[in-house]
């Protein structure tokens, strides 16, 4: 279901029952101002995650830098920019949820970014378990760690089939670890002498370590 028609969902994995109740009340109060229905939910998928960062152990297990995470703290000034107050304050909740709504609706507003353009992908964070992913997918992660590339560009740069690249990107999108951005179909420097140099160097070292390519 797309963002335009479904209620948007908030996860509060380390909030107490009372705090969740308070957030539900705030959402009720803000309904006329939010422009889109929001609900506190216990089951995913979630559109945003509110995390109590005053409880470091709990927070560490729920925080994911790559997700839409809203940090909530008794003393927000002692935390990174963007942290909001606990107990939650309606005007801060309104600001945060309005931003997220805008982002979500913006990302779904058009399937074609620009005339002649493509969707490009850029990594927001490496999956913590990437070492268990298929090794060819590491190439995809490396390829979009610094720059935005389309599926075709990634396939060309990594030498992987486009379908294989798509599968990796889908997994990254599901984990909210990749940004989808408009990009122009720039030329790919595949086969450049520098690329060949690094490829040869990597091959020599990997051979030395007994790792086949």
């Amino acid at each position: 279901m797309d963002v335009q028609t479904r209620p948007l969902s908030i996860a509060c994995p380390n909030f107490g029952i009372e705090e969740k109740g308070a957030l539900r009340s705030i959402l009720g109060l803000l309904k006329p101002y939010l422009g889109h229905p929001w609900v506190v939910s216990d089951a995913g998928p979630f559109d945003v995650c509110f995390v109590n960062v005053d409880n470091p152990d709990d927070a560490a297990t729920t925080l994911d830098v790559a997700s839409r995470v809203v940090r909530c703290a008794l003393r927000p000034k002692q935390h990174p920019k963007g942290t909001i107050h606990r107990p939650l304050r309606p005007h801060e909740v309104l600001a945060v949820l309005s931003d997220v709504t805008k982002q979500l609706k913006g990302s779904e507003s058009d399937d074609r970014p620009h005339q002649g353009g493509h969707w490009g992908f850029r990594l927001r964070g490496w999956p913590l378990d990437f070492a268990k992913w298929p090794k060819p997918w590491w190439r995809v992660l490396a390829c979009i760690a610094r720059e935005t590339h389309s599926i075709a560009q990634i396939a060309e740069r990594t030498g992987l089939p486009a379908k294989y690249v798509e599968a990796c990107i889908e997994r990254l999108l599901a984990a909210q670890l990749v940004e989808r951005l408009a990009c122009t179909p720039a030329g790919v420097a595949a086969g450049s002498s520098l690329k060949q140099k690094w490829s040869a160097l990597a091959s020599r070292f990997l051979e030395k370590f007994g790792l086949a390519r």
Binding site: R139, C143, K195, W198, L201
Partner: peptide
């Protein structure tokens, strides 16, 4: 060696220009 392998992958596919 595995850390090294990841570093080389980054070099080859993320810093190829």
């Amino acid at each position: 060696v595995q850390v090294f392998e990841v570093l080389l992958t980054l070099l080859e596919f993320g810093f190829d220009h």
